[in-house]
Nucleic acid binder design. Structure first.
Length: 603
RNA sequence: GUGCCCGUAGCUCAACUGGAUAGAGCAACGGCCUUCUAAGCCGUAGGUUACAGGUUCGAUUCCUGUCGGGUGCGCCA
């Protein structure tokens, strides 16, 4: 059972509890990140100094004058041992073996240990990354992971409310796959339930009048009209309800109509996914309807486990872990009094399936923060019912609402929801106008291509670069700016490197890296930390860490670019700087690609 | 009413989950292009981290309370 403290931390991180630590396969020799390497050495030194249980607390230094990494664990250890922290720090440093790694180790302040890396060590790390297609990214023991994301309701067209899940989920899936996990993408679309009875009933009507094809072309309108019919005509509403029953009972005629509607709606979604460039297609779709046959089984399983009771005609489970407004155990409705099922039932069936049929060990739900309580209840009940074993990680990766510039949920001027496809088209158009303004000499085709990468990249990056747990303010001008922490700035930094290579000619791709200038050292240090960032993003599902890193990297490259001439340098220095530039380009490209953002050779 | 989230520079956001003097970017002001894309770089200014207590060698981070904002809380998803 999780302690309250861990629970709070998990909530603060936007991940739900029930996480278990990722235990690396001990039989597998793994490459450690620099931070892990130093941490293990400091740990050993602490143990040798008489504090085997004290955490080393190694992290990148806050400022360059504090070295490259700092170990902060001594103060806490000294407290526990009731000794002088400076004296203990000296003992730890005396026993600290960083031969070949650090060139200088200092004690500062109350007992900080500041570690300056040896340039040769850094160079060697970068050399290894250059020689590796995956840039030296460590491969932990692969897990079977599912990322559930996007999951629109097929009754309507995709709108901006689906953007964050789609973008964030895609980035998380890419990162997890990159470090070697077996990742399944799942689009848990809403394709079942009461609304579909109404839609099928309306489809029948429009078919009779002969303009079904035309009506279906605008799903939003189709939904609106059928809703009006449902609300205004009791006969129609009755028919709609009958269709729901027939649908869930497997009536072939109604199922065929339903399938036609779902097919049209999925085509709309696919157009958005293709435009957005996220890895979703029909193979990722496993909607709510897929669990229809399992729903009665879930009910009987819960009943067999003694968890289910009848209350006011409905089948419910009471969870003492959660309190309702009256302070009594919170009820979770599994089956309505009319026999119908709810989304909790479907989600339970999905977890059951994912454990029993798919054997997943981690499931990441990229869903709006407002469903937080639902997931807490869902996960709790899944454990109790035996649908998910204790070592299966279930995480709600929550995110906030997308706001307009007025701080209210993003809408059109008239107050309607914004269709996603229209938002993306506008992004591309705006980017096209910008590119044409900045670089009118390029052929139109080229500008169109740049506009797509820049426009879509800007929308994605604006979202991904903010901590997902809070609401974020959508602003065209900020995201499409070529200055600051934006996708265009990063894409531009990449084109600058590419431009250097176009002029560099052939050079030795195995040449040695030599780190002499401060700007080279700072760039090298950042490049050597790529693996740490990726691991952290994979563990916390917080892509904004990667964005922050890439922005730092692009900025540091620009400083290096100003301070250290590349092409004008000679001999070993020239090749060394080309190597640094090459690794920077590959790291930027790989990092942006993990965010789902394309790079360009010129812009 | 109660659960959860949030409150950091004028604005948009960080702060590696308890570490050193709270950092970036916009916007403002001042420098740097006969030299690899100036869509860039360097610098200046901007803060009682909502408020009040507490724990700690150390708190934006943990605890308690207050104020403000968001969101959820039995037959929708």
């Amino acid at each position: 059972m999780l302690s309250r403290r861990l629970f709070q931390k998990a909530v603060a991180a936007g991940t739900m509890p029930f996480l278990l630590p990722i235990v690396p396969d001990p039989g597998r020799k793994e490459r450690m990140t620099i931070q892990q390497l130093i941490s293990s050495r400091v740990q050993a030194a602490l143990a040798a100094a008489g504090a085997p249980d004290a955490p080393a607390v190694v992290q990148p230094s806050g400022k360059p004058e504090f070295g490259d990494f700092q170990a902060n664990g001594v103060m806490g250890a000294a407290k526990a041992l009731k000794t002088n922290p400076r004296a203990l720090a000296q003992t730890v440093v005396d026993k600290l073996d960083l031969a070949g790694i650090a060139e200088k180790i200092e004690i500062a302040g109350p007992g900080f240990i500041n570690i300056h890396l040896a340039p040769e060590f850094l160079a060697q790390r970068l050399q290894a990354a250059l020689a590796d297609d995956a840039l030296g990214i460590r491969k932990p023991a692969a897990q079977k992971v599912m990322v559930e994301y996007s999951s629109p309701n097929l009754a309507k067209e995709m709108h901006v409310g689906h953007l964050r899940s789609t973008i964030i989920g895609d980035a998380i899936a890419r990162v997890l796959a990159f470090i070697g996990h077996d990742v399944t993408r799942c689009n848990h679309v809403g394709d079942w339930g009461t609304q579909f009875g109404m839609l099928v009933a309306y489809l029948v009507e429009t078919r009779q009048s002969g303009d079904a094809e035309l009506e279906l072309a605008d799903l939003e309108n189709f939904y609106r009209k059928s809703k009006i019919r449902f609300d205004e005509d009791p006969l129609f509403a009755d028919t709609a309800r009958q269709y729901v029953v027939k649908l869930q009972g497997g009536d072939p005629d109604v199922l065929a109509l339903w399938a036609q509607f779902v097919d049209v709606s999925m085509h709309h979604c696919q157009a958005v996914y293709d435009k957005l460039g996220v890895g979703l297609d029909r193979t990722a779709v496993r909607g709510e309807s897929a669990y229809n046959a399992d729903l009665p089984v879930v009910v009987s399983d819960l009943r067999a486990a003694g968890l289910l009771v009848e209350d006011q005609g409905a089948q419910v489970v009471f969870l003492p872990e959660f309190k309702n407004p009256e302070g009594e155990p919170q009820a979770m409705i599994i089956q309505k009094k009319d026999g119908g099922y709810l989304y909790a039932t479907t989600d339970l069936a999905a977890i059951r399936y994912r454990h029993r049929q798919l054997g997943l060990t981690r499931v990441v739900y990229v869903v709006d923060a407002r469903q937080s309580l639902h997931f807490q209840q869902l996960f709790t009940l899944s454990r109790k019912a035996g649908f998910a074993p204790a070592d299966m990680q279930l995480e709600h990766v929550a995110f906030g609402t997308m706001m307009g510039e007025d701080g209210k949920p993003f809408k059109t001027r008239s107050g309607d929801t914004v269709k996603l496809v229209e938002l993306l088209d506008e992004a591309i158009e705006r980017a096209y106008a910008l590119v044409s303004e900045k670089n009118s000499g390029l052929p139109e085709d080229t500008r169109r291509g740049i506009a797509k990468a820049v426009g879509i990249g800007a929308v994605k990056y604006a979202d991904l670069s903010k901590n997902r747990t809070s609401d974020y303010i959508f602003n065209w001008d900020t995201m499409l700016s070529f200055e600051g922490n934006t996708a265009p700035y990063l894409q531009y930094a990449y084109t600058r490197v590419q431009s250097v290579f176009r002029k560099a000619g052939e050079f030795d791709r195995c040449a040695a890296i030599m780190i002499a200038e401060p700007a080279e050292k700072q760039l090298a240090l950042l490049l050597a930390q790529f693996d740490e960032v990726i691991e952290s993003v994979a563990a916390t599902c917080q892509p904004h860490q990667l964005c922050g890193y890439l922005f730092n990297l692009a900025q540091q490259f620009s400083r290096f670019y100003e301070a250290c001439p590349i092409l004008a340098a000679e001999g070993d220095v020239r090749v060394s700087r080309l190597q640094l530039a090459a690794l920077t380009a590959r790291t930027l490209k790989a990092g942006l690609s993990l965010l789902g953002i394309d790079v360009l050779d010129e812009m």
